[in-house]
Write a protein that binds this DNA or RNA. Sequence first.
DNA 1: GCTTAATCGAGACGGTACGTCGTGTCTTTGC
DNA 2: GCAAAGACACGACGTACCGTCTCGATTAAGC
Lengths: 180, 180, 180, 180
Amino acid sequence: MARPSTVVRVHRAVLDLVREVGVDGLTMEGLAAAAGTGKQTLYRSWSSPLHVLFDALLASSTADDGRVEVPDSGDLARDLRTLVDGIVDELTEPAGDALMRDVLTRLQVHPELSAELQQRLLGPQTAAIAERFRRAGVVDPEQVTELLLGPLFHRWLLRTGPFTDGWVRSHVELVLRAAG
Amino acid sequence: MARPSTVVRVHRAVLDLVREVGVDGLTMEGLAAAAGTGKQTLYRSWSSPLHVLFDALLASSTADDGRVEVPDSGDLARDLRTLVDGIVDELTEPAGDALMRDVLTRLQVHPELSAELQQRLLGPQTAAIAERFRRAGVVDPEQVTELLLGPLFHRWLLRTGPFTDGWVRSHVELVLRAAG
Amino acid sequence: MARPSTVVRVHRAVLDLVREVGVDGLTMEGLAAAAGTGKQTLYRSWSSPLHVLFDALLASSTADDGRVEVPDSGDLARDLRTLVDGIVDELTEPAGDALMRDVLTRLQVHPELSAELQQRLLGPQTAAIAERFRRAGVVDPEQVTELLLGPLFHRWLLRTGPFTDGWVRSHVELVLRAAG
Amino acid sequence: MARPSTVVRVHRAVLDLVREVGVDGLTMEGLAAAAGTGKQTLYRSWSSPLHVLFDALLASSTADDGRVEVPDSGDLARDLRTLVDGIVDELTEPAGDALMRDVLTRLQVHPELSAELQQRLLGPQTAAIAERFRRAGVVDPEQVTELLLGPLFHRWLLRTGPFTDGWVRSHVELVLRAAG
DNA sequence: GCTTAATCGAGACGGTACGTCGTGTCTTTGC
DNA sequence: GCAAAGACACGACGTACCGTCTCGATTAAGC
C-alpha cells in the first residue's frame, strides 16, 4: 500500500495534534514532526499552524458534503425549529464545540481565511436558509436570515446563555413574527 | 513632578505599543522595555501581553464612564435607530475598529477575561437596552435585545456586509415587528 | 556557437562565485544555480563545493602549465634568491593570496585532495628545486629543499611576519651555509 | 557540591564531543545540548563551534602551564635534538595529532583566532627557543628558530614525509651548520 | 526516421542546523 | 530592600542547504 500523500498526512497530523495540545499548542515544528515532513514542506503550502488547521477542517467538512439540508415541510415554524435545533446541536456538540469556537474566533484576524470560510461554508448555508424564507413568501429573506442566525451566533460566541428548548422556541417565534 | 506609577506607565506603554506592532506583536519583553520596568514586575500583575492590553483598555474605557446612554424619547422606533446608529458608529470607527475586533476575538480563548468584559461592559449595556424595551411594554425584553444586537454583532464580526442606513432602518423595523 | 560543456560551466561558475561569496559561501545549491545545472549533475562529479573549487583551480593552474622554472645560472646564491623572490611574489600576490591560503588550508582536512595537490603541483616543484641543489653538489638536496621552503611556508601560513627583502636575503644565506 | 559553571561545562562538552563527531561535526545546537545550556548562552560568548573548541583547547593547554621548557645543558646540538624530539612527539601523538592539525588548519580562516594563538602559545615558545640560540651565541636567533621550526611545520602539515630519527638528526645538523 | 533510452534542468522532499526572539525563572546590582 | 536589568535553559521561529528523489524535456542511439 502506498504512502499517503504529504497533504493527507499533514491534515491527519494537525487534527490529531490539536486534540492533544490545543490550538495554541500547535507549532510548525510540532506539525512537521507529527506528519513526518520537513518544515519547509509545510511553509511551502501554509503560512502558520492556524492555516494548516483551517485547511484540514475545511477539507474534512467539505468532504462529508457540508451541504445544509434546510427542511421544507410546508410548515415554516416547524421547519425553522428543526433547522435551529440542528444548528444548536452542532454548535454545542461537546467534542467540536470548543475547537470550532476557538478556530472561528482566531480566523477573524486573518481576512483571507475568513473570506474563504464565508465563501465555501457560511455563504451557501445562509443562502439556503434565505431561499427557504423566500419560498415561504417572506419579503426580505436575507435580512430575516440574519435575524435568525445573528442571535444564535452571538449567544454561542459570547456564551451569554445556554441554548434551552424554551429559548430556541421563543427565538423562532420572534423571528417569525418579524418575518410577518 | 513625580514619576508616574508603574501601572500607569505600563498602561500607556501597551496602548502606544499596540498601535505600532499590533496585538500579535506585543511581548512581555517589549512591554517591559517600553514601560521601563523589569519583566518580573509585569509577571507579578499580568500573565500575558493580552491581559495587559485588556486591562489597559478596560481602564481607559471605564475611565470615560462607558455608560451606554439609551435614549428614551417615548418613540421606541426612533430611539432604537439612534441607539443602533451610535453602536454602528462605534463599531465602524476606523481607528478602533480593527483593534476592538482583534481584542474581542482573542478574548474568547481566555474565559476569565471574557467574563470580566461581560460583567463590566457588555452586561450593563444590554441590561440598559432591555430596560428600555421593558419600559415600552415589550413582553420579552431580554430576548428582543438579543434579537437587536445579535445580527449587529454577527455582521460586524463576520464582515458579511456593510452597515448601510437602509440596513439599519429595516433591521430596526424587523425587531420592532417581532417585539409586537 | 555551441553551449559550453557542463564541466566548463561549473568551473567558471565556481571561480566567479568564490570571488563574490568566499570559500565558505560556496554551496552546491548556489553552484548549481550559477552554472545552470542540476544539483544531481554536480554530485555526480564532485562531493562538496570545495572539491569543485579545487578541481577548477587545478584545471586553471595546470592549463597555464604551472611548471616552476628553477633558474640555473651557475651562481647558486643568485638563483636561489631569484627563485625565492618568485615564490614570494606568488604567495603575496594580493588577488590570489587569501584564496590560496584559504583553499590550501581547507584541503588539509581532505587527504585525497591533499594527495592530489602534492602529486600534481607541489611534488614536481620541490623535485625541480632539489634537482637544482643536486647539480650544485649539495649532499642532501631533498632536505635542504625543505630547509628552504619550510620557513617560507611557515611564515606565509601563520603570518608571523612580512617577506621583506632583508628577510629573504638572509634566509637564503642561512640555507646556503647549511648546504655547505 | 556546586554545579560547574557554564563555561566549564561548555569546555568539557566540546572536548568530549569533538572526539565523537570530529571538528566538522560540532554544531552550536549539539554543543548546547551536550553542555546542558541554551544556544543563546553559547552565542553570548562564542560565535562558532570552532571558537568554542579553540577556547577550550587554549584553556586546557594554558592550564597545564603550557610553558615550553627549552633544555639548556650547554651542548646546543644535544639540546636541539631533545627539543625537536619533544615537539615531534607532540605533533605525532596519535590522540591529538589529527585534532591539532584540524584545528590549526581551520584557524587560518579566522584571523583573530590565529592572532590569539600566536600571542598566547606560539609566540612565547618561539621566543624561548630563540633565547636558547642567543645564549649559544647565534647571531640571528629569530631567523634560525624559523629555520628550525619551519620545516617541521611544513612536513607535519603537508604530510610530505614521516618524522624518522634520521630525518630529525640531519635536520638539526643542517640548522646548526646554518647557525654557524 | 522513429522510437527507446539515457541524461539533463529543475525543484520537491525529509532532514539538520542556523542565528534570533520570546518565554518564565532566577540572580546580581545600584539606588 | 526592592525593582531594573539581564543571564539563563528552553523551545519555536522562518531560512538555507543538505543529499535523495522524482519529474518532464531534450538528446542520442539503435533499430
